[in-house]
Simulated assay, not measured.
Amino acid sequence: MTRTLNDLPTPVLILDRSRLLANVARMQARAKQLGVTLRPHLKTAKSVMVAELAVGKSGPITVSTLAEAEYFAKAGFRDITYAVPMAPQKLDQVGALIKSGVDLKFITDHPAVAQAAAEAGQRLGVTFRALIKIDCGLGRAGIAPDSDILLPLAQKLSGALSQPGVELAGVLTHAGHSYGATSLAEIERIAEDERVAVVQAATRLRAAGFACPIVSVGSTPTALFAKDLTGVTEMRPGNFVFFDLFQQGLGTCAMQDIAVSVLATVVSHHPARNHVLIDAGGLALSKDTGANRNVPGTGYGRVCRPNEALPLDGMNVHDVHQEHGLLGGPDAPKVDFAAHPPGSRLRVLPNHSCMTGAMYDRYYVTDGGSEIIAEWDRVNGW
């Protein structure tokens, strides 16, 4: 039996497959143009079906949780990078995945973690593969490429000097500060800083006699606007599969490229307050308001009719409570209440698709129309 958007309980997460395919093709072409491997970061999609469209059925992929690593491993993915600094208590879980045949690499920037990995590898009878996290300007994690810690840390991860159980797989960085850029020219500059930092670290390691096969960069903005990735082996963008209002405001995508949205139902009108009430609030949409930095007034998301790509003027989500979303508001143009009666459906484009997706266990997939052509699962938690 054919189902449509009108048949779904709300709020639910809608995925436009045609937009997803176009976004994936765009990034695949960029990786080919730049001469690097695409290792997409699945922290955005958390879905086997999306991963298979991006890189096939075995990888390479990037994940942000070990729950994701286990989920993708069960689906047959064998080349996985866990791109969050390793906690020593998680090494047994990583070891079990390695024993099952997964080439699971982790990252660290701390000698104590390297020591713990060496000892755990000996105890478990596995060889962990670790990437050194390099800071290229974000200032969140990682060491500077010219840090005095780099070579001693590599020594601890090299499997030498009575340290079996772990080996150095390479270096990795992430230019997350590209999201704070104010122009495409600035994104290009940050992309070059990202490349220079990680290549400098790899060059130092190789000059000291360490193998450094993987030189990894990431972020959707820098992947799309880097002019050159000489010396880099792979890139790890993630948000590109879906995009969102933040990316649109940054200039990395068009409104029509945003592939996910939240389907909601109108539940009431409040003409005196000039707002329509929907059943999608802070949990369904997230409370990420970062898109307002580039486009003030975006609120908690922009609102479309179910089968239209572009948002309605003046119908942004101006406020949210846990299960309530308020459209319009005192500063918006007068709402056409007759156009949105209780029971009618609307779609909300997300400010940050990674955050918005976190509350949902599946995607209801369309090809741009109202018919539901598939349901794709996704993994949540840690």
Results as ranks from 00 to 15, higher is better:
Met1Arg: 06
Leu5Pro: 05
Leu5Lys: 09
Thr10Met: 06
Val12His: 12
Arg17Leu: 13
Arg19Glu: 03
Leu20Gln: 07
Asn23Asp: 14
Ala25Ser: 12
Met27Arg: 05
Val36Asp: 15
His41Phe: 01
Thr44His: 07
Met49Gly: 05
Val50Met: 09
Ala51Glu: 13
Leu53Ser: 09
Ala54Lys: 08
Ala54Met: 15
Lys57Glu: 14
Ser58Glu: 15
Ser58Asn: 11
Ser58Cys: 04
Pro60Tyr: 13
Thr62Arg: 08
Ser64Ile: 00
Ser64Cys: 10
Thr65Pro: 06
Lys74Asn: 12
Ala75Gly: 11
Met86Lys: 08
Ala87Gly: 05
Gln89Glu: 15
Asp92Lys: 11
Gly95Phe: 07
Ala96Tyr: 01
Lys105Gly: 01
Ala118Leu: 06
Glu119Phe: 03
Ile134Ala: 02
Asp135Met: 00
Arg140Ser: 02
Leu150Lys: 07
Ala154Asp: 06
His174Trp: 01
Tyr179Gly: 01
Gly180Met: 05
Thr182Pro: 00
Ser183Thr: 14
Leu184Asn: 08
Ala185Gly: 12
Glu188Gly: 04
Glu188Ser: 11
Arg189Ile: 03
Ala191Glu: 13
Asp193Ile: 01
Val196Trp: 09
Ala197Val: 01
Val198Lys: 07
Ala202Tyr: 04
Ala207Val: 06
Ile214His: 14
Ser216His: 08
Val217Trp: 09
Thr222Asn: 08
Phe225Arg: 13
Gly238Gln: 12
Gln247Ser: 14
Ile258Glu: 11
Ile258Gly: 06
Val262Ser: 14
Thr265Val: 01
Thr265Leu: 04
Val276Ile: 15
Leu277Asp: 10
Asp279Thr: 00
Ser286Ala: 08
Asp288His: 02
Thr289Trp: 04
Gly290Asp: 10
Gly290Val: 10
Pro296Cys: 00
Gly297Glu: 08
Tyr300Thr: 02
Cys304Phe: 12
Asp313Met: 06
Asp313Thr: 09
His318Gln: 04
Gln322His: 04
Leu326Thr: 03
Pro330Ile: 03
Ala339Phe: 03
Pro341Ser: 03
Pro341Glu: 09
Pro350Thr: 10
Asp361Tyr: 04
Gly368Asp: 07
Gly368Ile: 03
Ile372Gly: 07
Glu375Trp: 09
Val379Phe: 13
Asn380Ser: 09
